[in-house]
Nucleic acid binder design. Structure first.
Lengths: 415, 415
DNA sequence: ACATTTTCGTTGTCTGTACCTACAATTGCC
DNA sequence: GGCAATTGTAGGTACAGACAACGAAAATGT
C-alpha cells in the first residue's frame, strides 16, 4: 500500500523555498528540541534531527553565539564511546512574559527558554467581573516586579484569555464570563506595559482553551501526540485542538468553540444567547444548578463547596455529577467522531472533578463515539492542571523565536 | 503586533531538512501550480513560488525531462516585455485511476496530470446493497477499458468510499449504507486490478466526504481557501475538513464523522446504533420520513420523487424540507463554531436540494453560530456536484507525485 | 596495565541548490 | 527607429549540508 506520506496535499502553500530558509528551519529544529525535549547531547540532536554531526556542530555554535544555548558537561551513556557534550537551552538567553486572565484568577509568569519558570504569581479574585482596564492594571502591577530582572532578555508576551479572541491582533470580541465586549486586549496590554518591555515586543493573545491545548501538547499530557483535544471548563466550556502537531485555528483563530455546539434543542439557555449549548448542559453552571447550589457564585470556591457536599454523600450532588459527566461524555464523543484524536485531555474544572465524573463520562462517551474512533482514544487528566493555559501562553510567546532563532533581535545581555 | 507567522508551532515534526529536500519541495511547488492552477508562464511560476527566474528555468527543465510538463506557445500579456513561454502539465505524463463507491452509484475515471479527465464512466444501481466482492468486480469491469490506453503512465489509484476508512491501508471498517463490515478494500482492489495496473502501484482509499472536501478545495468552490468545511449527505451524512490547506485526518483518518455528533438526546435512532445523531435528524432518511415517503428506497430517485412533490406544492414535503434545513443549519452552526471556516461547501443531497433548504438553513445557522464566526463564513453549493468525491480521489492519488515529482518512478512511455 | 572497540568532535573537501549579474531577445510605446 | 520594460540564458558565486579522514575520549576485554 502507498506510503501516505506527510499528508495528502502537495505543499499547502505552493511557495518555493530558498536556500537560507533551510538554515532557519534547521536552526529552529535544534532550538525546538532544546526547548521542548530538554538538554540533549549533540549526538542526540543529530539523531533526532537527522542532520550530520558537522552540521549540528555548526548549528549549536550559532545558537551559542546567539545566546540561546550553552554546552556544559558531557552525557554519561552506557557502553563504550566518546562522550558527547550536553547542550542546553539558556533560560536567561530569552524570556517571555506569560499572562493568564480567567474568571476566577489572574496569573503572570516569566518563563525562560527551555520552559523554566523564572518567576510566577497568581491571584484569585472574588469579584466576578471588572472592567478590562482594571484587570489590565492589576496584571501589570503583578508582572512588574517579576519583569525587572529579565527585561534585557524579554522577547515576547503571550496572554491567555477566557474569551473569543482574534489571533491577528489580540482583539477580544466577547468574553461573557468576564463581562467583556470588544476589548482590544493586545493594544491595551501594550499600552499598560509601556516601557516595562522593550519597544516592539510582540504581544500575542489567544483563547484560554487553545493555549491549554498548546501547553498540554508541549509540556503536559499530550507530549509527542500529534492529534489531541483539550477540553476544559472554568465558567465557560471550550476546547483546544491540536491536529498534525499544530493548533487548529480556523480563519481568524476562533476555532475550538465546542462549548457552543448544539447538544439538546430543548436544553437550557446559554450565555451566548442560544439554547442547549454543550456549555449549558455540561459546564459549571449546569453542574451547580443540578446540585442545587447558587449559580451566581462562580469559580473555585463554588466547586469546592460542591466537592465537599459530594464527599459528604449528598445524593443530589452525586446525581448532578452523574448527569454532568454523562453530558460531558456525550459531547466528548461527538468531538471524538469529528477529530479522531489520539488523546483527550481534560482540564480546568473537569480536572478537579475527574474522580467523580469519570464513570458517567466514559458511559456517555461510549454511547456516542464510533467504535473505531473510541478504540484509539485515551481520556487523560491534565498534567499541568490550572497552569495549562499559562504554560501555553508562554509557548505561544516563544513560537516566533523557535521558528526563526536568528531572526529575532538578539536580546540585550544585561550587565 | 506580532506577525503570527505560519502558525504557533516550531517545526511540527522537529526534523531537520537536508539540501536535496529543498529541491524536492521546489519541484513540488512548480508541479503543483501546473497541476492545480493550470498552464502558467515561467514568469508567473517565478512570481507565484517566489523563486528566481534561473531556478524556475532549471526546475521546469527537470519536469520536462521527467515527462510531466511541456512548453508550448508564449504568454500574451498586455504591456511591453519579452513574452514568457507557457508551461503546462502533460496530461499523458502521469495518470491516475479515480474510483468512487457510493450507495447509489459507482464511478471510475482516468485523470491526467493537470486534472483533465481522460475517460470516465458512471453507473447507477438500484440494488441498495451488494457484497464487496461484487462491487469491486463491477468497478474493475468498468475501469478496464478506460485503463488500457494509459497503463504506461498510471502512477496511482485513489478510491472514495461511503464508509469509515482507515487511511493507512484502505481498510473499510464500517459502511452502514453499503452494508459492509470490515472490508479490506485496498487489498481487494489491488487483487482485482491485478495486472491492469503496474506492480507496486499505490492504492489509496479514503472517505467520500473527505475526498469531496479535497476535490472542492482543489478544483471546486474552495479553491484558494485554506479553511473550509464540506458537508455532504447521500444516505449518510459526513463532513470533510480542510484546515491550513490540509485535510484534517485525525490519528487514523477517521476524522470528519460529523454525521454522528449528538444534536438531540430525544432524537431518532441512527444506523450507527446511537440516537439523535445529526445524520438521523438532517440526513436523507430524516427528510424522507418527515415528507412521508418510504425510507427504504434510497438514492437519487427517492430524492427526485421528493423534489417533484415539492414543486407540486405538497405541504408536508415543504414542511419536511423546512425542518431538515433548520436542522442542517443548526449542525452547521456547531461546526462553524468548532472550525471557524472561511467557506462551507454543501454537496451531495444538499447540493440538489439547496434552493429548498437555503432559507431554513441560514436561520438554523444564525440561531447557533457565534456572531464573529458567522460573519466570516460563506455557505456555497458544491461546484463539482456529484463529481466532488471522484475528483478528490484523483487528487488523493496525485498527492504523492506532487510532493515528490522526481521520487515517483518515471512512468514508462508507451510506444 | 594495555590494546581494542566504539562513539564522537573536528577539519577540510565536495556536491547540490539557489541566487546574482550581465547580456540578449522580444515587445510596446513614443 | 529608438527607448523602456520584461524576460530568457549563461556563467559565476554563495551557502548549506554531506562525507571522509583523523584524532580524542571513554568503556570493555584480556
Amino acid at each position: 500500500m502507498a506510503a501516505t506520506g506527510p499528508g495528502t496535499a502537495p505543499t499547502a502553500d505552493g511557495r518555493g523555498t530558498r536556500g537560507t530558509e533551510l538554515r532557519r528551519h534547521n536552526l529552529s529544529a535544534v532550538l525546538a528540541q532544546l526547548h521542548l525535549v530538554g538538554p540533549s547531547s549533540r549526538s542526540q540532536l543529530a539523531g533526532h534531527t537527522g542532520l550530520n554531526r558537522s552540521t549540528i556542530a555548526d548549528l549549536v555554535e550559532e545558537l551559542i553565539t546567539l545566546g540561546f544555548a550553552e554546552e556544559s558537561g558531557v552525557a554519561t551513556r552506557p557502553g563504550p564511546g566518546r562522550p558527547s557534550p550536553i547542550v542546553r537551552a539558556c533560560p536567561q538567553g530569552a524570556t517571555v512574559l506569560a499572562i493568564e486572565l480567567e474568571v476566577g484568577s489572574f496569573a503572570a509568569a516569566v518563563i525562560g527558554l527551555g520552559g523554566s519558570v523564572l518567576a510566577e504569581r497568581r491571584i484569585s479574585r472574588s469579584v466576578p467581573a471588572s472592567s478590562a482596564a482594571d484587570v489590565i492594571d492589576e496584571i501589570v502591577r503583578l508582572a512588574k516586579p517579576m519583569l525587572a530582572p529579565h527585561v534585557g532578555s524579554l522577547v515576547s508576551v503571550g496572554a491567555a484569555v477566557a474569551g473569543l479572541t482574534r489571533r491577528t491582533d489580540g482583539y477580544v470580541h466577547f468574553a461573557p464570563n468576564l463581562a467583556w465586549h470588544d476589548v482590544a486586549l493586545g493594544e491595551l496590554l501594550r499600552d499598560a506595559l509601556g516601557t516595562m518591555v522593550p519597544a516592539g515586543t510582540p504581544i500575542e493573545v489567544a483563547n484560554e482553551a487553545d493555549l491549554g491545548a498548546l501547553g498540554e501538547h508541549r509540556r503536559g499530557a499530550g507530549r509527542g501526540v500529534s492529534d489531541l483535544l483539550f477540553i476544559s471548563a472554568e465558567v465557560g466550556l471550550g476546547a483546544g485542538i491540536i491536529s498534525r502537531g499544530l493548533p487548529l485555528l480556523g480563519t481568524a483563530g476562533y476555532a475550538g468553540e465546542a462549548g457552543h455546539m448544539l447538544v439538546d434543542p430543548l436544553g437550557h439557555p446559554c450565555a451566548c444567547g442560544a439554547r442547549g449549548c454543550w456549555e449549558a448542559e455540561a459546564g459549571e453552571n449546569a453542574l451547580l444548578r443540578r446540585a442545587g447550589l447558587p449559580t451566581d457564585v462562580h469559580g473555585y470556591d463554588a466547586v469546592g463547596e460542591l466537592l465537599t457536599r459530594a464527599e459528604q454523600g449528598e445524593a443530589r450532588v452525586h446525581a448532578a455529577l452523574e448527569e454532568t459527566g454523562w453530558r460531558l461524555g456525550q459531547g466528548t464523543g461527538s468531538l471524538v467522531n469529528l477529530f479522531n484524536p489520539e488523546v483527550v485531555v481534560l482540564g480546568g474544572l473537569y480536572h478537579r472533578l475527574l474522580p467523580w465524573l469519570e464513570r458517567p463520562l466514559q458511559a456517555g462517551l461510549s454511547s456516542r463515539a464510533l467504535q473505531v474512533a473510541l478504540e484509539m482514544v485515551t481520556i487523560v487528566p491534565s498534567e499541568l492542571s490550572e497552569q495549562a493555559p499559562l504554560v501555553g501562553a508562554g509557548e505561544l510567546a516563544f513560537a516566533s523565536l523557535l521558528t526563526d532563532p536568528a531572526g529575532v533581535t538578539p536580546p540585550v545581555v544585561s550587565a
